[in-house]
């Protein structure tokens, strides 16, 4: 019975092919260092899920952002767990993505035919940092406020365009309700959308080219 249903779906969706290509493809001899990309993706999915749950109670307005975070931490059942995972997962994700990048660099995996995988990976690293930067403001506490003041001020020191960049980031000359709102929008819609798109291409390229061999002495 289940086999019939599975066969019917497999003929139309190609489930067996998907399984073979995604989870059962041939790999060269690998080490734990090769798992960092998958670990990063797992963390991203966790961040997405816990982030969605956080938006159930969080409100991005200067009046209530701080109180709503306090409420999540103390008022809602397991709010501390959801926010804890999101908070620590964010830090861990930046670390893992960076170590993943170092691994690819040291094993020279960025060479032909994987140059585009590497370049898109840089995009993924930058969007991950963007997620960290925008998410840091959202609790709207002292640390968040001043970190974003400093961060956007640094962006403002860019030559020629500096003032424009600062105003574009803050939504005006000062840190305000507009800043919080646009950081929230960037954090939950804009940057994740870019990140998911890049991740799709990154994964496609990895499946297309396969993992690289670790270089030997002859290389």
């Amino acid at each position: 019975m289940f086999k019939n249903i599975y066969d019917w779906l497999d003929e139309r969706l190609g489930l067996n092919d998907l399984y073979t290509n995604l989870l059962d493809r041939p790999e060269p001899k690998t080490t734990w260092w090769n798992t960092l990309g998958s670990a990063s993706m797992f963390l991203f999915i966790m961040q997405g899920l816990t982030g969605i749950f956080l938006t159930v109670y969080y409100t991005p307005s200067p009046d209530h952002a701080y109180d709503s975070v306090q409420y999540i931490m103390e008022g809602v059942a397991f709010g501390w767990l959801i926010r804890g995972i999101h908070h620590w997962g964010a830090t861990l994700m930046v670390v893992l993505v960076f170590v993943h990048m170092l691994r690819v660099f040291y094993t020279a995996s960025f060479k032909f035919p994987r140059e585009l995988t590497w370049l898109i990976g840089i995009g993924l690293f930058l969007t991950t940092l963007g997620m960290g930067f925008t998410g840091y403001l959202l609790p709207w506490n002292q640390k968040a406020y001043w970190a974003t003041t400093v961060g956007t001020q640094i962006a403002g020191t860019a030559p020629f365009l500096g003032e424009f960049i600062l105003k574009a980031l803050r939504g005006g000359p000062d840190l305000s309700a507009l800043t919080l709102q646009r950081f929230f929008s960037a954090h939950i819609w804009i940057i994740p959308a870019v990140l998911v798109g890049l991740m799709g291409i990154h994964l496609y390229l990895i499946i297309k080219h396969g993992e690289s061999h670790f270089p030997t002495k002859e290389d």
């Binding site: 966790m46 899920l49 749950f53 159930v56 809602v76 059942a77 397991f78 709010g79 767990l81 959801i82 995972i85």
Partner: peptide, 15 residues
């Protein structure tokens, strides 16, 4: 471990 608390988290105000 994460899924069950998440459900509780979502329906908490109703309880």
């Amino acid at each position: 471990v994460i899924g069950l608390p998440s459900i509780y988290y979502l329906i908490d105000p109703a309880l």
